[in-house]
Each structure stands twice: as C-alpha cells, then as structure tokens.
C-alpha cells in the first residue's frame, strides 16, 4: 500500500534526528481556539488516556483520572504545527457507538455531524481486541482517522507485542504507538494527524464485513438509495446502519435536512 508509507516512521520512536521531525513546529496553544485550519476529534474507550493525549497535544491540564467516565464534558483545546492550527475536541469515552446513552450520543453525533478533519481513536494497547470494536464502528462513520495505540508501556510490561504495520494494513489507517503519560510517540502522532488532515496520507478504512449476507444486502440497498437521494452525504453506509438500527435521531436529521447541511447540531456537549 503506497499511501501508507509514512507508517514506518511512526513505528520507530525517537526519530529526533530525522529531517521530518520538527519539534519547533509544534506550539501548544491551550484554549486559544481562534480560526483553526483543522478540527481533530479525540475518541476512544473509557480510561484509555484520551485526556492525557489531549493534554500532551494542547499543553492544557485537563484533569485525568484512572477511572472510566472521568471526562463527561466535551473539552476543546488547540495546537499548531508547521503553521497550521488544529482545534482538538476531547470526546467522552465510550465502548461503542451503537447504544443510546447520552455520552455515546455526544461522541457519535460529533463524529457524524461535526465532521472533524481527522478523528484520532485512542486505544489501550494492552486491550486491543476489545478496543477494536469501537475503532471499527468509527471507521464506518469516517474515513479520516488515526489510531493512537496508547499505554504502550503498559502493554510492554505485560509482554504484549503489537505489529503496528500489520494493524495499520488491516485497518487502512495510520497507527501510532504512544505512551502519552511520558510524552512518548506524541511527535509521531502529530505527524500522522497532519498527514491525514492535509491529505498526504490517504486512508482506506476497513469496513465491517463479518455480517450475515441478508443484512449486508439490506445495508447496501439502503445506502445506495441514500446516495441517490442525497448525494452530498459522505457516509451513506453508516446512515443505513443507523436507520436499520432504528436511531430516531438520524431519522430526524434526515427529515430536517441536517445531514446534508453544514452540521450545525453536533450534540450538546455540555
């Protein structure tokens, strides 16, 4: 996969000597959110260190805690890298995007209606399989994503090894190993974000495929119909999945034209 060539760089940490590495290019902007070039969403399972990654990128000190559900408010911050400004939105942690609880809705609606330029999915490296459930669901919604494999130090302590290249190939998105608590892997993460945001890295995300034929057919038929009626919708497949699930919020969005609009309603993050 030619477009995944930047991966190799992500795999090796500590490439400070490399010409691509540009530590001076990073400016942590805290809460200064004015006129950003890109909007980056930070999603992931609870207690995987999203807020720690958020802090590492923005220089803010959003409080973190070792318990699932610490972040209930959508936090926003900013950083700039190579003269581009990035607005970062820390979403509440969720195990999936398929149920109806309030925090999941905030996360789901932001990724769908907020249309972030890049969605960074933070996953716990030592619990990869469980975390992949959410990753796969997010990849159904957006095809501009980076997987941040956080807590890699813990995985190493547990003698868990992860083949980042294989994972990146399977998922079709850049994968970066980080240990945000110790600021490790953050430069590589920023480069991956920049690559996807600027379009240098093209993602071809994995779609869910272990589903019975009957359902797949229904999804395809419905998503074709959606594409026909609303050609502007970028993720007809996800809309189809949600409609078949019976998501009232999507039905409503379809009725009031919000899905094709400029994504005004991004869930009340308060």
């Amino acid at each position: 996969m030619r477009e995944m060539k930047t991966d190799k760089k992500n795999v090796q940490a500590g490439c400070e000597g490399c010409a691509h590495y540009n530590a001076e290019g990073l400016k942590k902007l805290g809460v200064n959110l004015n006129d950003s070039d890109y909007v980056i969403a930070l999603a992931g399972n609870p207690n995987t260190g999203k807020s720690t990654v958020f802090n590492a990128l923005t220089g803010l000190r959003q409080h973190t805690g070792n318990w699932p559900g610490k972040t209930v408010v959508r936090a926003e911050g900013a950083f700039s890298y190579d003269n581009k400004k990035y607005k970062l939105v820390d979403l509440p942690g969720t195990y999936s995007l398929l149920s109806t609880s309030q925090d999941e809705e905030v996360a789901r609606n932001f990724i769908l209606f907020g249309k972030p330029d890049v969605t960074v999915i933070v996953a716990d490296a030592s619990r990869l399989e469980r975390n992949l459930n959410l990753v796969l669901q997010i990849l159904e919604i957006t095809d501009r994503a980076v997987l941040c494999l956080n807590l890699i130090d813990e995985a190493k302590r547990h003698k868990i090894e992860i083949d980042l290249r294989a994972l990146s190939r399977d998922l079709g998105i850049p994968v970066v190993a980080t240990s945000a608590r110790y600021q490790e892997g953050i430069p590589e993460l920023i480069q991956a974000i920049e690559g996807v945001a600027s379009g240098q890295i093209k993602c071809s995300p994995r779609k869910i495929n272990n589903v019975p034929e009957k359902i797949m057919k229904a999804v395809v038929q419905l998503s074709r119909e959606i594409e026909k009626e609303f050609p502007e919708i970028p993720n007809s497949r996800w809309i189809a999945l949600r409609l078949l699930e019976g998501d009232g919020r999507i039905v409503e969005a379809l009725r009031n034209g919000e899905l094709v609009g400029n994504g005004q309603l991004v869930g009340n993050g308060q």
């Binding site: 399989e129 990753v135 796969l136 083949d163 294989a166 399977d170 495929n209 272990n210």
Partner: peptide, 15 residues
Amino acid sequence: GIYADASEIAGHAVR
C-alpha cells in the same frame, strides 16, 4: 460481526 472482525484483526497484530 464487529466482534468477529475485531478478533480477526487482533489475531494478526497481537502477540
């Protein structure tokens, strides 16, 4: 389906 996909991918990547 999602679980099956996840376990397949994790099977490739995790040792």
